[in-house]
Design a protein around this nucleic acid. Sequence first.
DNA 1: AAAGAGTCCGAAAACCTTTTCGGTCATTGC
DNA 2: GCAATGACCGAAAAGGTTTTCGGACTCTTT
Lengths: 342, 342
Amino acid sequence: MARTPASRGTRAATLSDVARLAGVSVATASKALNGRNHVHAQTRERVLEAAAQLSFSPNSLARGLLAGRTGTVGLLTSDLVGRFSLPILMGAEDAFGAGQVSVFLCDARGDAIRERHHVQALLSRRVDGLIVVGSSTDPRPPLADAVDVPVVYAYAPSEAPEDLSIVPDNVNAGRMAVEHLIACGRTRIAHISGDRQYSAARDRAAGAQAALEAAGLALVGEVAYGAWEEGWGRAAAGMLLDREPGVDAVLCGSDQVARGVLDTLRERGRRVPEDVAVMGFDNWDVLATGARPQLTSVDMNLEELGRAAARALFEAIDAEHGRGVHTVQCRVVVRGSTASAG
Amino acid sequence: MARTPASRGTRAATLSDVARLAGVSVATASKALNGRNHVHAQTRERVLEAAAQLSFSPNSLARGLLAGRTGTVGLLTSDLVGRFSLPILMGAEDAFGAGQVSVFLCDARGDAIRERHHVQALLSRRVDGLIVVGSSTDPRPPLADAVDVPVVYAYAPSEAPEDLSIVPDNVNAGRMAVEHLIACGRTRIAHISGDRQYSAARDRAAGAQAALEAAGLALVGEVAYGAWEEGWGRAAAGMLLDREPGVDAVLCGSDQVARGVLDTLRERGRRVPEDVAVMGFDNWDVLATGARPQLTSVDMNLEELGRAAARALFEAIDAEHGRGVHTVQCRVVVRGSTASAG
DNA sequence: AAAGAGTCCGAAAACCTTTTCGGTCATTGC
DNA sequence: GCAATGACCGAAAAGGTTTTCGGACTCTTT
């Protein structure tokens, strides 16, 4: 006999089946399985045994329908392929997965139409909350639809100030980077960054310059904005060495840029870190640990950001909705490219 | 008044609300909204209007409870952080998202206990099917629990031959790579690969050697197994040049290894591709396009693999369950590192 | 004008679980 | 022995949707 969908295995056991096998009513079975009041120990034992025998698993749909809560949340990303969504997603999944919450994953591909479609689908599935993950740290418009569940924006803050957003602290990241270079004894520090259109680039530069001023120093040359690519790093490093041969540290806007800078320094015969220290941002493992020497980088703690977003959503579901933009701190991961100058 | 969870917004509108506003019964409202038989056009219009006014969105829980189908699937990955799960996940999400299916994402972190926990949770949510994504192409044990919904294994095949698995064709990938190098006029081809423990490394090497034999050639030296790291590529390339100075092409086990090989070739004064052609596997964009010259690489079409897994799951849900291991073809992405030797 | 056909709508059951409330039984104290 | 109490169990409703079936109404045909 062909295995049609209807006949695939025996239909999952229901509470009625368990109750019948245990010789009790469904009400008693429910109470026994949920550890509720006033069930005789012996009866409970019978019910548990029956449930195990039928490998009973309560239907979450029915439960959710009744309770008005589903124990699910939606994770709406606009750019799954990107480097930054993933760790955030990991952290969120981590924080939720520890409890009883399951995560719906949706990728809007940066398309507003698709985003609305996904939001509608999630609402129809009665998610308890929503996390919206952006693909850059630039603010994004809030969700188009009116949603009656809590929403937390992660990485990219919402443009609406009354929304709750959790973002990395790029300004402080720039500050910490420069402070590390200064602690390594560097004083002639240049900054080769990525695309100026990105607030991440501007914020990091602002933080870096603030730290320099605080130390009574100034940047060597201007901030060199360009692209988030190795090729830009190579080219910009060449120009920098031509114009400012005395530079003793290069802070790079990303690890990709830093890889390019390292290449050019090597070719020009500058030793790293003895002659010039190099730092990146993002702590992208494959780039940072494959470099020669291994690359010191600022980690944005994205996984922690994801966990923070999940926690914030929990709180918003259970009680009051938080507001405004919160930041997650970053940290410097020290590797060979910034060993202290003897 | 404090906004308690109960008072957050007005409770979502139900079909009864719509029916009442339209002045019809819930049955009629349901039929009108679902385009069913025998509803007067004018009545339907009234219902649609009422639904729009209340921004009614049908409760998927109730629908799923009744239909026995939820329109959800579980995506169980063992290694979300890894490079390979993500595109597969993208492709699957893509194929599902086009329809009416939502995806539950779970990361088991490579832990069997956690995996069982997630499977139980997914079954309790009555998913219609399951995709299990491995973190390497080595076979993995099948799911521990008996599941009464279709399961498709992606990337890592199941050890059980009666399960349905969809994997990249690594043997053919190796073959295609060597054929490309031969087409570029190379005859003295060496192979520097990654960790021998991985079947991906062994399969690619086997395919490469088969293609060489078919062309009446032989590998220069032995296959150099090592680690999936740039450092190994640099070291192995050094040894290779010492032992086999006449080599005119290096096939690398991954793009990371290839980056290391490129570095050493440059330092030894070998021009790429004029003197030595270099190829990688994986087509990891950030590594391949950042290299000098840009790196020719074999793309495993992982996103297509994810789509194929989703399609296979669709079929298994609707009808008969397929069996055995299916492969997805890969393709060579040509860049500067293998330009034809004049 | 009556019968038949066709069109449209509504009542009710089904899906599965949880919770409330009432009922049964035994036990205990007087 | 009787009433009160407590322990345990079961009936029923609720949650929102879809579907089936029967009923009511209208229009056409003879």
